[in-house]
């Protein structure tokens, strides 16, 4: 993650990455990650998931503030703005949408 070396790269993605999505999504599948990539070492274990929006579109996201025992196929989830990671090479704090119950 720390190899994202350009603030222009972050700015360029603003339009597609940061609009706050409307509505609930459905949980399809997930994994609790214990072996982290660069930049997420301090967040393990964290949960990544594939979720499905009401229009059927699927995407990959993180889940927060849910006990893993509560996770099940079809669980309804709502978006929440969270910190992704901090202090990459470009010195920026990355924010984005994660999902919770």
């Amino acid at each position: 993650m720390s190899h994202k070396s350009s603030s222009a790269k972050i700015w360029r993605k603003f339009g597609s990455r940061y609009p706050y999505p409307e509505g609930q999504v459905k949980l399809i599948t997930w994994s609790v990650v214990h072996a982290a990539p660069l930049g997420l070492e301090d967040q393990v274990p964290y949960t990544v998931a594939i979720v499905e929006a009401e229009d059927g579109e699927r995407f990959t996201t993180q889940l927060v503030d849910i006990a893993s025992a509560k996770l099940k196929y079809g669980l309804k989830l709502r978006p929440t703005l969270r910190r992704y990671f901090t202090d990459g090479v470009e010195g920026l704090i990355h924010y984005g949408v994660k999902y919770t119950i």
């Binding site: 599948t29 990650v33 982290a36 990544v48």
Partner: peptide, 19 residues
């Protein structure tokens, strides 16, 4: 759309396994 969200390679195959 995957790695940036924290999906590692094992995590992708783990999601396949769970499904």
């Amino acid at each position: 759309w995957e790695a940036y969200q924290g999906a590692t390679f094992p995590a992708l195959y783990a999601m396949i396994a769970r499904e």
